[in-house]
């Protein structure tokens, strides 16, 4: 089973918010749509769900063209950023309502809902209203609802952005295993590159309605296709050197090393990150970020360099990768 987006375009008035989008997500694959707000990632999700209609191109699930298929017939499990739980219904009813409108028998409803409640460890909350739940619990209910649908495709729209950082990290593996367990295509929208790398086995980095690069987290990190991708992925951000004969060079902070033969620099400030530390250096070619182990003793004015292999080179005008 595959989800395919072919040459998708969407515009509001005259401006295109999405253009020439090609995506293919296979069963058991989790594609993260990553980008800043306004890049078109949420629009893409809505187009797949049928909540919005593309102006160009087609969407297929397992070869079925979704044109003119209403959202209710697309068999899609979606987790909304707001969770979109029905506030007037209990948790159990929130889960039952879909089964009911899809015409499941009462015993079926009961059996399915109670098994998902058990799976998601929500039994004790079954008769509470959403307002009585914590953020993490609500998120679980939203996920449970999507799982209960037994959909052909999972769509997750910033599912963890309303949770605090600690909870977010602890939930990642659980969610990842739950959604991948279904062996269905998963599309995961986020603006958090760390989350994208943790959750997805493929990431599409988007900007201004275009996909800049699609690849595994590893590929995006090690060979970013453009300056945008290079800067968006990896924290602390990549160092971009001043252009030199039509080329912009990028060096990741961890690739900078102390070298007696290197260029002069002076420490502006340091930030402890735990096992490592970030050092901001003033050099003749501008300010540079450097990461070293926290144990390393760095002199006040270190000489630095980097391995030429670790240089990322980009064309000055197009910002595209050269090496």
């Amino acid at each position: 089973m595959t989800l395919i987006l072919k040459n998708i375009g969407r515009r509001y008035g005259k401006s295109w918010v999405l253009r020439n989008l090609f995506l293919e997500i296979k069963d058991g694959e989790c594609l993260a749509l990553l980008g800043p707000s306004g890049c078109g990632k949420s629009t893409t999700l809505r187009l797949i769900a049928g909540l919005d209609i593309p102006d160009e191109g087609s969407i297929y699930i397992n070869g079925r063209d979704l044109k003119n298929v209403s959202p209710s017939k697309r068999n899609i499990g979606m987790v909304f950023q707001s969770y979109a739980l029905f506030p007037h219904l209990s948790i159990a009813s929130n889960l039952t309502i879909g089964l009911k409108v899809r015409g499941a028998t009462e015993s079926e409803q009961h059996q399915k809902v109670s098994s998902i409640l058990t799976l998601m460890k929500l039994e004790d909350l079954a008769y509470r209203k959403p307002a009585q739940l914590s953020g993490g619990q609500r998120q679980r209910v939203a996920l449970a609802r999507a799982l209960l649908r037994d959909p052909e495709v999972y769509l997750l729209d910033e599912p963890m952005s309303n949770l605090d950082a600690q909870l977010r990290e602890s939930l990642r593996p659980e969610i990842r295993s739950l959604i991948l367990q279904g062996q269905k295509p998963v599309v995961y929208v986020t603006h958090d590159q760390q989350e994208a790398m943790a959750m997805a086995n493929k990431i599409a980095v988007m900007q201004k309605g275009n996909v800049e690069q699609i690849g595994t987290p590893n590929e995006l990190y090690n060979s970013p296709a453009s300056i945008f991708v290079a800067s968006f992925i990896g924290r602390p951000q990549i160092n971009l050197l001043p252009p030199e004969s039509g080329i912009i060079k990028g060096i990741r902070p961890e690739d900078i090393i102390i070298n007696e033969n290197g260029i002069n620099s002076k420490i502006i400030y340091q930030e402890w990150l735990g096992s490592s530390k970030l050092i901001m250096l003033d050099t003749p070619i501008g300010e540079l970020r450097m990461i070293t182990s926290s144990n390393d003793q760095i002199p006040e004015c270190p000489k630095i360099s980097w391995d030429i292999k670790n240089e990322h080179r980009f064309e000055l005008t197009t910002h595209k990768r050269l090496n």
Binding site: L51, S70, P71, S72, V101, R102
Partner: peptide
């Protein structure tokens, strides 16, 4: 939208 995706009219 959630309700629609759940199959509701």
């Amino acid at each position: 939208e959630a309700f629609k995706l759940e199959g509701g009219s």
